[in-house]
């Protein structure tokens, strides 16, 4: 059976159930790369120019680990997901960059996903994407509908039942159950803001969420807020969305600034273009709300674990003291 490889990086955390369902319905076997390790990051960063951001380096390492494991790799070029907003250049040029930097890369399935240009182009892209598997447009239609259904289920698990992506994936039987600490007697609530590929790749963020939970913190993320709430806060804070994933950052940040949380931590990958501006908007807003402690963490492939842990501990201690003194 034809094997389609999906790198466990970047948009994997948002769309994996959808992609998997789509390819399985077309009769392909889906292979996912193993979780990030040091060697994934090292191989990834050795292939691209040093200025490239960490998530793309990690992505490149994952594709490298899929070489020889599959007949195709699936790397969509996601340009926009709605009218008016655009994605970062790195998502758009991803298939081309991978083709240029990964030697012996299996053929890349690289549909152009540009929903701003209307549905027709999108349907054509889907049909084109399915060509290695089937000629039958009806089969493609059925696969797409099933894929969309599983995406809705996934989103529902997150936004309405308050699961993080890893837990939602486990619930759908696509990943082993993550051994998160039972958020037992939590003493405070902290919102962690960042793109899912930064927050839920435990290797690159040094188990940030798990560490916080271990310190008795209830962690909330963008996924746990309702989608309409995010859109509303985004509109209030920044007007019309310019970036595709602006609601995850500006929207979620604005949302939690108005909710009952004790602090907000934003996690950014070094050199992230969109975040350099979005986080600034959020930071400015956070300054106006002195009751919420705000901390910004920047991660790259050199991040030393001890430094991160020290900052987290100091931050949590500070909030605890503040709560006790009130």
């Amino acid at each position: 059976m034809t094997k389609v490889g999906i790198p466990r990086a970047l948009l994997y955390y948002q769309f994996y159930p959808m992609w998997r369902t789509f390819f399985s319905h077309l009769g392909a076997d889906v292979v996912v790369s193993a979780p990030t390790t040091k060697s994934v990051i090292t191989t990834g960063s050795s292939r691209v120019v040093s200025e490239t951001c960490l998530p793309v380096k990690v992505f490149c390492g994952h594709v490298r680990s899929l070489v020889g494991q599959c007949d195709y790799v699936f790397i969509p070029s996601v340009c926009s997901l709605e009218k008016g907003s655009h994605n970062c250049s790195k998502f758009m040029g991803l298939p081309d960059v991978i083709k240029a930097v990964v030697p012996n890369c299996p053929p890349i399935l690289d549909p152009d996903i540009d929903l701003a240009k209307g549905k027709r182009g999108f349907y054509l892209a889907l049909y084109h994407l399915s060509r290695p598997f089937t000629w039958n447009p009806l089969k493609v239609k059925a696969a797409s509908e099933a894929a969309w259904q599983s995406h809705l289920t996934y989103r529902d698990l997150m936004h309405n039942q308050g699961l993080v992506p890893l837990q939602a994936l486990a619930q759908m039987g696509l990943e082993p159950e993550p051994d998160f600490h039972e958020p037992g007697p939590a003493t405070m609530t902290i919102a962690v803001i960042g793109h899912p590929y930064v927050l839920f790749d435990e290797y690159i963020n040094h188990k940030l969420i798990r560490r916080l939970q271990g310190m008795g913190v209830r962690v909330v993320t963008a996924e746990m807020a309702g989608e309409e709430d995010l859109a509303l806060s985004l509109k209030k804070l920044a007007g019309r969305a310019y970036w595709t994933f602006e609601d995850e950052i500006v929207g979620a940040g604005g949302h939690y600034l108005e909710r009952n949380v004790d602090g907000i931590i934003s996690v950014v990958a070094f050199g992230c273009g969109p975040d350099s501006l979005m986080i600034d908007l959020l930071q400015r807003q956070a300054r106006k709300v002195p009751t919420k402690a705000y901390m910004s963490l920047t991660i790259d492939e050199h991040t030393a674990e001890a430094g991160l842990v020290t900052r987290l501990e100091a931050y949590v201690d500070m909030i605890r003291r503040r709560k006790n003194s009130v």
Partner: peptide, 16 residues
Amino acid sequence: PFTCMPEIIAQNIMPS
């Protein structure tokens, strides 16, 4: 410019 997203893409592709 440093951290320019489109030019990083270009820079990655140029050697190939």
